[in-house]
């Protein structure tokens, strides 16, 4: 409990320790701590930036997706329209073709009918002559009775 030179010794030691702390301990520690604080701040800022970039990218992706969807819908609609048009066209083509075929068949038939009729007529005159000659039992000169025969053919034609 005596006050003695320990007092002075402790004061000197105190001064030395404070000096030592200020000179050798404080700067490296505080610098390192500040360096780490900067690093952490940078890291957080980078993370935030990344987050923002991700948000933007997500928005873009969503927009692109919706665009693609509408495009696809458009394409499908177009394709449907086109398909319908093709079907319609095919239908009309088929219709006209059908009519054409029917028409040509009709003309053919008409021609056949006509030619058959002509043949029949020409045959009718000879048959008629043969029948008449048989009936009158005598030869009829075709040349002398030509006018009579023509008259008959005309009547047949008209009939």
């Amino acid at each position: 409990m005596n006050i003695n030179a320990t007092l002075i010794g402790q004061t000197i030691a105190f001064g030395l320790f404070v000096w030592f702390c200020k000179r050798y301990v404080w700067p490296p520690m505080v610098n390192a701590m500040q360096e780490r604080q900067t690093q952490i701040a940078d890291g957080l800022a980078a993370a935030e930036k990344g987050q923002q970039a991700q948000d933007v990218a997500e928005k873009e992706a969503a927009q692109m997706l919706s665009e693609a969807k509408s495009q696809a819908a458009e394409i499908v609609a177009n394709a449907e329209k086109r398909g319908n048009a093709v079907v319609e066209e095919a239908k009309t083509t088929a219709g006209s073709e059908k009519e054409r075929i029917i028409a040509s068949a009709q003309t053919e038939i008409d021609q056949d009918v006509h030619s058959a009729r002509e043949e029949l007529r020409s045959q009718v005159s000879s048959i008629a002559v043969a029948a008449a000659s048989k009936i009158v039992d005598k030869e009829i000169d075709e040349k002398t009775h030509a006018s009579l025969l023509d008259d008959l053919v005309k009547q047949l034609k008209a009939g």
């Binding site: 005596n2 006050i3 320990t6 007092l7 402790q10 105190f14 001064g15």
Partner: peptide
């Protein structure tokens, strides 16, 4: 030790 306590205070 009162010397140590007072010595530190003396430095302050």
């Amino acid at each position: 030790d009162v010397n140590i306590a007072l010595g530190t205070a003396l430095g302050v």
